[in-house]
Design a protein around this nucleic acid. Structure first.
Lengths: 273, 273
DNA sequence: ATTTTGTACGATACGATGTATGTCCAGCGC
DNA sequence: GCGCTGGACATACATCGTATCGTACAAAAT
């Protein structure tokens, strides 16, 4: 009974488990059931149901019991096809990557293409808000993630950057998109949980705050906070944060690309490591 | 028994709960126990213990039972001082903000100062890796967060940017630092859980991957992935990602600052909203 | 046609977790 | 002395992931 647990369970919202099993799952090593008995379930059906739940009810509602319920089977039945919840998350992730455009953007220069790549990712996050919260820093390299990486690198080849910088640039931009998407998903989740808009929330609590804080002690915060709040209609506007940050990033990357072309840039990593 | 749960519990690792209670907690509305009976516990002692646990054992190990155990009291005793786990997280967050430097950086121009602000935040995340994972998009404005915001804005005043852009710039840079810190904490957690370095992990699983993937189908990914892995000694190097991204961001922000000074920049938000 | 076998599926149960609830007890004012 | 108040705690419950083991049925073997 309950043999060597202890390191398990905690992977609840963490998309990474035994990678060999996840890899086998993602690349569909398992033959589609040699004996062909009664096969109500399948890896694909389970993944689809799980994605549906996470999309519509939020990642917190994604429990194995709920998945089973949606599929109309017993609680433990999905475990025949999927080793555990972590592997299921890995599977969900690689599955939705498959919804990205199949071709690398080919119009414009690297800057136009990179912006396009960023917005494609943004759109995917909007379609599957749980994705940003669940991606791991040690991703399981499924077929669709591999294809995604290949495609996105392809969009940057004409920048003239070296391979290492190529990876750094892509990681940086996609990291920004992911962070914005995470924030957006957080806000949406909070709004549906609390039944209050961000704006309503701040309005409801600023009187409290005013009561506690010493008046005039934080002039910059008061002034800038108010200005930002009014400009965005909220304390934080994810869509604005995305575009604002993307513009600064692309400008900053342009500086690097031009330095590189002018031969000015030595080996930058030597100075930063 | 267990009346209207359902919207509770899920706040497990989410640092936001009933904000009025959190605010009252953070600003210490509650008098320090008028009756002075046997007072073993206090809000401060609970917060300190919780931070200690999260620092040394990871945020996943932070349970109410563990907190009570460390304090040497019964499981439910902390609830006398703290309404719930979410509020405790809010309290922990504002408490560690208090460890940041008390004064705004005053050497150099805005760029030097902003970089300093970024690195101060980075250092805080290194000291408390759980922080990056727990900060909410709807933060509870405790005294230390308010002071932090005031101080960080002060470092940027000489940039000549307008109030709204000031907030956007700060949010952008701190978001990058936080994302890097989150990634670093993720990696560290994975390494201690799995007992494997990122590098070891990739080396152990690249044979698997090679077996699945079609050889030669993804040349860019293969080449760039290998190059990046060798350059950083891992698939992802958080410290490098932090510095690389910070440089691009500061370059990009410089472009904006100079455009602003030259009067070139109209109202950017009109075009992006 | 009958037996065997392997696998899909499910019922039950366990440990972990947040926290509601009711109780006990120490110290205070009277 | 006596009741009151507020701090501390033991117990219990719902929910979650999942280990374990039993059942039923289709394909294979006879």
């Amino acid at each position: 009974m309950a043999k060597d647990r202890g390191a398990k369970d905690r992977g609840a919202t963490r998309g990474t488990a035994d990678p060999a099993r996840s890899l086998a799952l993602l690349w569909r090593t398992r033959e589609p059931s040699a004996r062909e008995g009664r096969t109500e379930l399948s890896v694909a059906r389970i993944a689809t149901a799980a994605i549906e739940i996470a999309d519509t009810e939020g990642i917190a509602a994604l429990t194995m019991r709920r998945v089973s319920e949606v599929l109309g089977v017993g609680t433990m039945s999905p475990y025949t096809y999927v080793p555990g919840k972590s592997e299921l998350l890995d599977l969900m992730i690689d599955t939705v990557y498959g919804e990205l455009p199949a071709e690398a953007p080919d119009e414009g220069d690297w800057r136009v293409r990179l912006e396009r790549v960023a917005m494609d990712n943004w759109d995917l996050y909007r379609a599957h808000p749980w994705l940003a919260a669940v991606e791991s820093s040690r991703p399981v390299l499924g077929p669709n993630l591999l294809a995604k990486y290949e495609r996105e690198l392809g969009a940057l080849l004409d920048s003239g950057l070296g391979d290492v910088d190529l990876d750094s640039v892509l990681t940086l931009v996609l990291g920004h998109v992911r962070a914005s998407a995470r924030a957006a998903a957080d806000i949406a989740a909070l709004e549906s949980e609390t039944g209050m808009t961000d704006q309503q929330w701040w309005q409801a609590h600023s009187p409290w705050l005013a009561g506690f804080a010493t008046a005039g002690a934080t002039p910059n915060a008061d002034r800038v906070g108010t200005a930002a709040g009014e400009a965005h209609g909220a304390a934080y506007d994810p869509e604005h944060a995305l575009r604002f940050g993307l513009r600064r990033l692309l400008d900053g990357i342009s500086v690097m690309v031009e330095q590189q072309r002018a031969g000015v840039l030595g080996d930058e990593r030597a100075a930063s490591g």
